[in-house]
Design a protein around this nucleic acid. Structure first.
Length: 464
RNA sequence: GCUCCUUUCGUCUAGAGGCCCAGGACAUAGCCCUCUCAAGGCUGUAACACGGGUUCGAAUCCCGUAAGGAGCGCCA
């Protein structure tokens, strides 16, 4: 927690599942802290009692762990920090920087609507800004529960340098007095968020661009509290393929869904690393290397589209990088649970380079351990061209040489005179029902000679 | 409506006035390798949103337009 070191944080609200946008924000903050040898904090912004759910907090933690982004120190939950906020709010109240507002949500809503229809910005009009004591007493007597609003200075401007967008300037007159404490006494986002950042020594905040125009409010609060606000960097949003906001309607997947589908964390972080962040690094890298290569100066200002095809590229590379043991764990859910350990690992070793997702293993489980699916038209064509004699020779070869692939293919070649693709294509089709797939040698070994012979014999007798 | 952000190949991006008739990666096409697929190697197709300025010179600066996005919440 050295004052000179970088401290970043991820501050999600537990109101839903982590999605790609969130995950990228977490990743970038983590990377920055790691790169600088600093700290990465996790704070749960659960001040909205209505929508916050403990199970989401749990899920959040699991997702971060799974991605490989552990946080430093204790998790801070804002719901536990009422007294801290109370104290700071008192300070602002004594300094006359905030005032009680007795307007009801309904009144505010009506005001907003009428402003909007008359073409004006929907801002708080300041009804309660200059109430005297007796007016306040009267409002209170009506049974109104006040909120606390921050008194935005008349005139003046707020200037700051955004890490990715550069110099920013906002007029105070464009900002309405905003709520810092709700009627139920809880602290509102603008307030608790910046206060906690300052109090926990956060130096840099990388967050979504949707916060950019809210930043002046938070800076105003920090100034009133005489606290040092972090340096902000606003990340452009991730959009769908058509440029619209990433949403479930567009098939946006939560991290949990991606994980359940079998996407590897390494694939995800490598893809996210390059979304909205440019880098010369084009290889599949681990988090340590990504941290070294991360540079906030290379954060991109324009929105990035999420392209599932690019994710698949990283997934393929991540899958390729798996060891056989890791591959086995990865595809385990799709293997028959009756399988013995040796067969399972032989299967994983033979197959894993050919899969993108574990569910892709299903077909090959069927081929290796079960019945062969029907040959398709193109496959039948291939089989007919090869002719029954070919398969008879193949079956005979396996009968005498067993699963010794080299001996088997040599025998078939000598017997039929076929070689190269002429030899292997029909063989592959007959044995696997497909024209593509993993190497045949290990496949034969695990599918057993008996199964192979049966498949070949069927074609030698059934074909015309 | 007001304020703010954004706009380079299909996608992610490099580019901060001449080094750019725009570079890289992925995708895609072709070839090589190969029993197939994948991997690998080589080659190719492909972009500065539009319109005005400023300048000897603009993807880069200025002004408009268009398109997309965000904020203006007792949501975060």
């Amino acid at each position: 927690m050295s004052p000179t070191g970088t401290t970043t944080r991820f501050a999600p609200s537990p109101t839903g599942e982590l999605h790609l946008g969130n995950a990228r924000t977490a990743l970038f903050n983590w990377l920055l802290a790691r790169r600088d040898g600093g700290r990465f904090l996790l704070r749960i912004e659960d001040t909205d009692a209505e929508r916050s759910k403990p199970e989401f907090t749990q899920q959040l933690m699991e997702d971060l762990q799974w991605l490989g982004l552990p946080w430093d120190g204790e998790i801070v939950a804002q719901s536990q920090r009422g007294p801290v906020y109370r104290e700071a709010l008192d300070k602002l109240e004594r300094a006359g920087r905030v005032y009680p507002c007795y307007c009801t949500p309904l009144e505010i809503e009506v005001s907003r609507k009428s402003q909007l229809t008359s073409g004006r910005p929907p801002r708080y009009v300041g009804t309660c800004r200059n109430l005297n004591d007796s007016e306040r007493a009267a409002k209170l007597a009506e049974g109104r529960k006040p909120t606390l609003r921050f008194k935005v200075p008349d005139g003046g401007r707020v200037e700051f340098v955004d890490l990715v967008h550069g110099e920013q300037r906002f007029e105070c007159n464009d900002i309405g007095d905003f709520i810092v404490q709700r009627a139920d006494g809880s602290a509102a986002f603008f307030f608790s968020n910046v206060l906690d950042d300052a109090l926990s020594g956060v130096t840099t905040v990388l967050r979504g661009e949707d916060h950019l125009s809210n930043t002046p409010r938070q800076l105003l609060i920090a100034m009133a509290l005489e606290l040092k606000a972090p340096t902000y960097g606003h990340l452009s949003l991730i959009t769908s393929a058509d440029g619209s906001p990433l949403s479930k309607r567009h098939g946006a997947k939560s991290l949990r869904q991606l994980r359940e589908q079998g996407y590897l964390p390494k694939a995800l972080v490598n893809h996210l690393f390059r979304l909205g962040h440019s880098s010369d690094l084009h290889d599949l890298l681990d988090l340590q290397k990504l941290a070294v290569g991360f540079n906030p100066a290379h954060l991109v200002r324009s929105p990035a589209r999420f392209d599932p095809v690019q994710l698949e590229v990283w997934q393929r590379r991540a899958v390729h990088a798996l060891s056989s043991d890791e591959a086995l764990d990865w595809m385990r859910p799709h293997l028959p649970n009756t399988l013995d350990a040796a067969s399972a690992s032989a299967f994983a070793a033979a197959l894993h380079q050919n899969l993108l997702l574990p569910s892709d293993a299903a077909y090959w489980v069927q081929v290796v351990f079960g019945e062969l699916p029907e040959h398709d038209a193109e496959g039948m064509e291939l089989i007919n061209v090869a002719g029954p004699a070919f398969f008879e020779a193949a079956a005979a070869a396996i009968r005498t040489h067993g699963i010794d692939w080299k001996a088997v293919t040599t025998a078939i070649r000598e017997q039929t005179g076929r070689k190269g693709p002429e030899l292997f294509k029909p063989l592959r089709q007959a044995l696997t029902g497909r024209r593509d797939g993993p190497e045949l040698a290990p496949l034969l070994k695990i599918m057993t000679a008996a199964r192979a012979i049966a498949r070949l014999e069927r074609l030698s007798s059934a074909a015309p």
